[in-house]
């Protein structure tokens, strides 16, 4: 669906490029996670895809056509749901939806259908006549998402859509987003919440300093280190074992160990038993997305 090839972008008066030869292939259907620390280039890439910026190098094809051409031919095919509450607080929910429907160029009948559909999708029926400024954080996020769906886009760009909402609203939003591909909308999802990405994305790309660090199916990326073991113990890991397996303490008696090979696992368990250390929990062969992210992007603080 979306082919991004060698895309570069530099902001005026900034020496370091925001994007430096980014290449991604995003298939139709599914939720695609776009991850990276602050300043990695995610928002710039999203802005380019939304038509707010123009890449200074490389090419982007949407459904086989150059992006600008595709956007001109089908202006509603790609929609953006920004991280900010990008609607009018003094207008009611219904007035906001009506305005953005009109801004998309939908005629009266089309607008009515799409608004009803968006209200049902985001479960906004109870608040349609309420001014947006009186909505809770969760309802605002739902309205933000509903506006993005008014044009029935083929590609939806979601920029951190769950920031500042309670767990109930987050679960609702994640379920709703996960269901979008079934209705024909491919989603590009950026978030700093790794567990969200793990829960709803089928493919992810991790970018940093304007370049792609890794990209692929989530299962494949997390399965790639089968010799990694996560342990939760009943006591502290003996120093000798920690040294031998390059253990990383993660607090609360949780450790990540690297084995020389999968065959070394039985011996490790024997050694722990011999040391009188009970194993509470054991995970083998699947890396945590957050660990993968931290390993690839390093632990240094970003802005």
């Amino acid at each position: 669906m979306l082919r991004i090839e060698g895309v570069s972008f530099a902001y005026r008066d900034v020496d370091t490029p925001a994007l430096d030869g980014v290449t991604l292939d995003i298939p139709a259907g599914g939720v695609y996670g776009l991850l990276g620390p602050n300043g990695a280039g995610k928002t710039t890439l999203i802005s380019i895809l939304a038509g707010l910026q123009t890449a200074t190098g490389g090419s982007i094809a949407f459904n086989g056509r150059p992006l600008a051409e595709a956007r001109a031919a089908e202006p509603r095919a790609i929609a953006l749901v920004p991280q900010d509450y990008a609607f009018y607080p003094m207008l009611t929910v219904a007035e906001n939806l009506d305005f953005f429907g009109g801004a998309l160029g939908l005629d009266r009948a089309g607008r009515k259908t799409q608004i009803e559909s968006a209200i049902a999708f985001a479960r906004l029926e109870q608040v349609i006549h309420k001014p947006a400024e009186q909505l809770s954080g969760g309802l605002r996020r739902r309205l933000n998402l509903a506006i993005g769906l008014l044009g029935r886009p083929q590609l939806l760009l979601l920029d951190e859509p769950t920031v500042g909402v309670d767990p109930q609203s987050r679960h609702f939003l994640l379920d709703a987003i996960a269901g979008l591909p079934a209705s024909g909308t491919t989603v590009i999802y950026t978030s700093h919440y790794m567990e969200e990405v793990e829960a709803i994305c089928q493919r992810v790309a991790i970018i940093d300093r304007g370049t792609v660090l890794t990209e692929g199916a989530l299962d494949t990326l997390l399965r790639c280190e089968e010799s990694v073991v996560e342990l939760e113990l009943g006591c502290e890991l003996p120093a000798e074992l920690a040294s031998r397996h390059a253990a990383i303490a993660e607090g609360c008696l949780k450790y990540r160990l690297k084995l020389a090979s999968p065959a070394a696992l039985p011996r490790l368990l024997d050694d722990l038993t011999a040391a009188g250390c009970a194993v509470q929990q054991l995970k083998v062969g699947r890396e945590n997305l957050e660990h993968l992210f931290m390993r690839l992007t390093k632990r240094s603080l970003r802005d």
Binding site: S47, A50, G51, L52, R71, P75, R76, I78, A79, L80, P82, Q83, D84, Y85, A86, F87, Y88, F100, A103, L104, I147, G151
Partner: peptide, 14 residues
């Protein structure tokens, strides 16, 4: 501009 509404409208091709 601050709330990103202008960006959203621009992304809508306005």
């Amino acid at each position: 501009r601050q709330q990103g509404t202008l960006s959203r409208l621009a992304a809508m091709g306005l």
